[in-house]
């Protein structure tokens, strides 16, 4: 396919993906808005004042960046895993397989769909947070690039999950048993400096810790870890997952018999 046709195919996938999550906005956009508002009210407003300061910031301000990242992570992952697995399940993936769309376009199309949903939800949560705190952005460039890279990374994660999944249960195992625990332990609600040395070291093996801290640095200017290292890690993981996704797609894993 020439450049123009490839671009049209890419747009077609992205538009279809956006149309899908917009059509079911009650399942895709509303729940994170409600959950995050509850977090703001309960942890920020009710419990926060009793905790006092964390890394030199009000507790509410400290948790907002982590909660925004948490919504970006869950929503970009969820979008791609459910959409792509749904296509496999209904076999409408065959519409793409018979057509001349190159695999890398299929992959980037789906990832873009996940990124759009992740960032849109991130934006909604950010706007909601303004009702509870007045955020001053320390470094907009860091903030936006971390959000974007994270959305890409977890969209790829969702894609790989969907490629391996053979039944509906398989698409909720990773989010419930891996993603959620890692997010909670990734320094969304606390600074790892509060942990004993041993658990601080263990925490450093959690990729989400780097994401949350880099994003918090973008907004508040404070972080538990080196932001440069965080960027390297996120980019490294993204490249690895992209190659793995493309490899699985080329092999037709779970798609072609």
């Amino acid at each position: 396919m020439g450049f123009n046709k490839t671009l049209i195919a890419f747009q077609t996938i992205v538009v279809k993906e956006i149309r899908r999550f917009m059509r079911i906005w009650v399942q895709t956009l509303l729940p994170p808005a409600i959950t995050m508002t509850l977090y703001f009210v309960i942890f920020g407003n009710l419990i926060g004042p009793r905790i006092g300061e964390m890394n030199g910031h009000k507790y509410m301000d400290f948790i907002v960046p982590g909660l925004i990242m948490m919504s970006v992570i869950t929503n970009s992952y969820a979008n791609v895993v459910s959409s792509f697995f749904g296509m496999k399940f209904q076999r409408s993936i065959e519409e793409l397989i018979v057509s001349p769309v190159p695999n890398w376009v299929i992959l980037t199309g789906y990832v873009t769909g996940g990124v759009v949903r992740g960032l849109l939800v991130g934006l909604i949560v950010t706007l909601l947070s303004l009702g509870f705190t007045d955020l001053q952005v320390h470094s907009p460039l860091v903030m936006v690039s971390v959000a974007l890279l994270t959305a890409i990374l977890f969209s790829l994660g969702g894609f790989i999950n969907a490629m391996f999944a053979t039944k509906f249960d398989d698409i909720s195992i990773v989010p419930s048993f891996i993603l959620t625990p890692l997010t909670y332990l990734g320094g969304v609600f606390y600074s790892i400096s509060l942990l004993p040395d041993f658990w601080q070291a263990v925490s450093l093996a959690n990729p989400i810790l780097y994401i949350v801290n880099a994003f918090r640095f973008g907004i508040l200017g404070v972080t538990d870890i080196d932001v440069g290292v965080a960027f390297l890690m996120i980019i490294g993981f993204t490249v690895v997952l992209f190659c793995l996704s493309l490899h699985l797609l080329n092999k037709g894993k779970g798609i072609r018999s």
């Binding site: 396919m1 046709k5 490839t6 195919a9 747009q11 077609t12 749904g86 519409e95 057509s99 001349p100």
Partner: peptide
């Protein structure tokens, strides 16, 4: 996709061919 509209299904397929 059972949930998509008839027209969208056909138009989307054309998009895949550029």
């Amino acid at each position: 996709n059972q949930f998509e509209k008839v027209f969208d299904i056909v138009v989307t397929q054309a998009g895949y061919y550029g």
